[in-house]
Design a binder for these strands. Structure first.
Lengths: 218, 218, 218, 218
DNA sequence: GATGAATGAGGGTTCATTCAT
DNA sequence: TATGAATGAACCCTCATTCAT
């Protein structure tokens, strides 16, 4: 979304108005990525036509090949770049010292605002849908996203168990259980929203309540 | 590999063994469905070539069209026929009067043996992957599978809440939470099994334990 | 389905009612020809499917191949057999000694009742349409139909000229001019009948009047 | 024969010689139309393969689809564009004040030089052959060609009758009779030229003589 | 003979990729 | 660098023909 190198500096030229060549090129690259994300989300890898991507991006078909080696490279670029920015956020939660409920609520907020309410929800569906056909994508996400998030969660959950905030030790063993409802909401709404929309925030809050059910009122 | 040279053998039987024409035709239909399921599972709808389906089924390409109108009809037939048989089983659980834990264990067993350990796990991934592109499929599964199962679960969960087996009333409101971990295991293993296989039975048992966490050992 | 050899000869059997095997076979052959004519007329050679011919004839597709070597043979059989019966009639007109107008009227009547009002009009269109692709058909019709009719007409026209019934010697040189309006009516109505039907009998009568315009009322 | 090895030559020019892209594209379109006309003429609509059209035009198969939506659109474009340019000429004859014989001779000349001696003769056969299968084509030609020409001829013939140049009022009623021999020559030569070529100019002149047979030398 | 399920070559159409401008 | 016309391999589907029953 912003120029990457900006070597020149002075003159403005080209049709873009005030941008120099490098900035224009970067802007084109971003436009292609954005358009491709929309098209891949709507149709999956195979059903997406680069013609449509180009039209949506406002560039010529050949221009795509100036920025990406081929259709698959474009696809992988998108799929890889969308989720990784969130990983750091989630990993950082490991380092703050607040009650688990607070962390859980932050995770929910992050998930709703950065995934469910953005194109990232489609990325998740794309990974599920195309992963088996693109082993590299599955491998990348396991290595760069899933395993790192799971590791961080394990630390957090372990600490919560030790503090007595969570009674279920199994949760620390299977941090996947923490995210299962989040995955569910993404998939449910992608398929069934028109029939019966699912209020993600409510579902995820209910999920936290279940996990945190204290031995309170004895 | 096909036709032309077969000189048959025992004179009394065609290549089908002891089958008559109708049975052979039905067997071919099944072979096609089986092959198509395998190919669609591996590559999704668009990337699957009917040539490969035919080869895998051991029939000629044209034979597919004797049984199915076109590629999409074949796809829908597969996707529609695989899950519906399970719906009745799940609905029947509503009518038996046993503790919720017993029902939950039956659901886990059913899910593991009839979904995770069969091709049905691929069907679920196919629905997630192709549903947005085939609205009929999403609509069909909402109507014939999901909404019916959700309704049955709601009854069961409601009863469990009333009996005090479950404290979390939210569960009855969001029966999706009951199945979220099951969906998670399907997707996890389809993507990451080679990196870190998930023991579905253990995960689901842990999930039940969490839901049923009694105020017991205080 | 039925006994295999049936040497006898007397009894009637089979599904046909009172027909013996040979008669049934012949009836099937006729049914196929009739159905094929209808289908070829509607769609031309290439667009006609033997499936449709078989269905219309009430036989199985394979049965067609018991009577005809292949699709082209069936086509040629139809195209060849339809017009030849008329050739004799036209040739015989050479031998009767009546005024030309009487002969011309007979030709008109024959053409209207045996061509325009029957499937033969479609055969003519088929020959025009497919002739260039089936040189044998063009050759056959030139040899067996057109050249013979033209020869007979030439004799008749020559005699009419000598008798002073027709002043235009060119007619005897180009007997095609005699038939041009007949061909026109066939083609016109096959293409434009729904927009502006042409009264064939009226057109052909007018044509005769023109040819026979005497120097009468001076 | 195509692409791949061409290394261009004079550096300044592509393979098209001195043409710019638009001109080259138009030239390709024309080449496709020309090739398609030849192929359709030889085999009719159904029997023509776009592969052959492309090869004859010297383009790739896909190039056809840059210019025409599909096979039928290509066919209709050809069939529609070939005859309409002649309509205006024929209609204009209505406005010139010369003896009918002169007009008739112009029509003959036009027909021979612009139809019989060009590809248009094949178009006429194509319309006859495929018209019933493509109602739009029949409708188009009735509306844009035939009805307009017939109307113009009616005016001309009517005037000739009033002037006493033609005695046969029926001609004005059935202007089709004027063109019947022309149609005949097209069809005759398309089918039988190799057996017995018909001298179109001679036939058509004879036809005019017949129509104009004056009450002269009594 | 009669059947019709099965075959598989063939053709229309699409679309990722290239390359002359 | 950007363009988009051109390419041609690939794939769905049809249908003439075959052959086991």
């Amino acid at each position: 979304m912003s120029g990457k190198l900006r070597k020149s500096g002075t003159a403005s030229a080209g049709r873009g108005g005030g941008k120099d060549r490098a900035a224009q090129s970067a802007a084109r690259r971003e436009a292609i990525l954005k358009a491709a994300l929309a098209e891949f989300s709507a149709g999956g890898f195979a059903a997406t036509r680069l013609d449509d991507v180009a039209r949506r991006a406002g560039v010529a078909k050949g221009t795509i090949y100036l920025h990406f080696a081929d259709k698959e490279a474009l696809f992988q670029e998108i799929v890889r770049s969308m989720l990784t920015p969130l990983v750091g956020h989630l990993e950082n939660l490991r380092n703050i010292d607040v009650p688990f409920r607070a962390i859980a609520e932050q995770i929910v907020n992050l998930f709703v605002s950065e995934v469910l309410e953005t194109d990232r929800k489609n990325i998740i569906r794309l990974i599920v849908a195309e992963g088996p056909r693109f082993p590299k994508i599955a491998e990348f996400h396991y290595r760069e996203v899933v395993s790192r998030v799971m590791a961080a969660m394990q630390v957090i959950l372990q600490r919560a168990v030790e503090r007595g905030e969570i009674r279920h030790k199994a949760l620390a063993q299977f941090p996947q259980l923490l995210f299962a409802p989040a995955l569910m909401t993404v998939i449910w709404n992608s398929l069934f929203e028109q029939f019966s929309p699912l209020d993600a925030r409510a579902v995820l809050r209910a999920h936290i309540d279940i996990l945190l059910s204290e031995r309170t009122k004895p």
